[in-house]
Design a protein around this nucleic acid. Sequence first.
DNA 1: CTCAACTTAGTTGTGCACAACTAAGTTGAC
DNA 2: GTCAACTTAGTTGTGCACAACTAAGTTGAG
Lengths: 149, 149
Amino acid sequence: MASLRLEDQLCFGLYAASRAVTSLYRVVLDDLDLTYPQYLVMLALWDKDHRLVKELGAELNLDSGTLSPLLKRLQTAGLVVRNRQADDERSVRVSLSETGKALREKAQGIPDVIGAAMSLDEAGVARMRAELDRLTESVNAYREALSPA
Amino acid sequence: MASLRLEDQLCFGLYAASRAVTSLYRVVLDDLDLTYPQYLVMLALWDKDHRLVKELGAELNLDSGTLSPLLKRLQTAGLVVRNRQADDERSVRVSLSETGKALREKAQGIPDVIGAAMSLDEAGVARMRAELDRLTESVNAYREALSPA
DNA sequence: CTCAACTTAGTTGTGCACAACTAAGTTGAC
DNA sequence: GTCAACTTAGTTGTGCACAACTAAGTTGAG
């Protein structure tokens, strides 16, 4: 029987680490006028432009309740544009504006800053990332078994 | 130079894992009518009752902007009571009600469910927790150096 | 062809997180 | 003893997350 003590629990470690990292991003992203979730959307678009809202949601595991207002703010900031698809009027395609594309240059140095802050070498990052992915997979599978979508 | 690709970044793995775990807690805690942050506060109080808001904030790394409304909701739910300290009227002591103490029984099984969902043995949990704590420590130190409190 | 089932994005409401601020109480240098 | 600096909670405003819902468009079984 596992204990109910806060300090024993992995979940709290995860929660604390996630907030610590987000809080570092807040400092680093201040210069780009982006929040951390907005930065994740920009990363996805810099990697592959012209995405449907649905595709962004699948990559980031976020639903339209989170993405719609976030994308609206990115559009207001002039970083992306949104267009209804002609061939399927339900879908909305999100594309980078020139400003949005240009912002990539300012972001180039960020991963190295974050890497330095974590004091992990490339192998350490890869190993931990793999463990976290396995954890996420396992937890999501368990949750879906408990409470089917 | 680290890449700007989403899939390479540890931070995204952390963010995804943290949300996956919270989402499992949402299912598990539904029965107790608690959110995950509320559960963390209850854990802290079950471990040691009669805490100042300040002490809870230090343990959970949360400020009064988060805790004050959360504690108000726990009080409305009848799980805790809050009292201004007589010897220092600035401080508020948070104590479990009988209902709040009793709720501990219903929570007994939760850590094992979460443990099972993570498919990690006790050693794996301890190791990962240690790595996450080191990461949090390192990232927080870096952030404070960048942007002093 | 029709329309019920489905898909996609968006809206609404709740509850964190957190920055910035306020209000009230305490303390210590002088 | 006084008051400026500090401490402690609480408030306000913004932006996620997410459940539940709506609106509009698409599709396919019949």
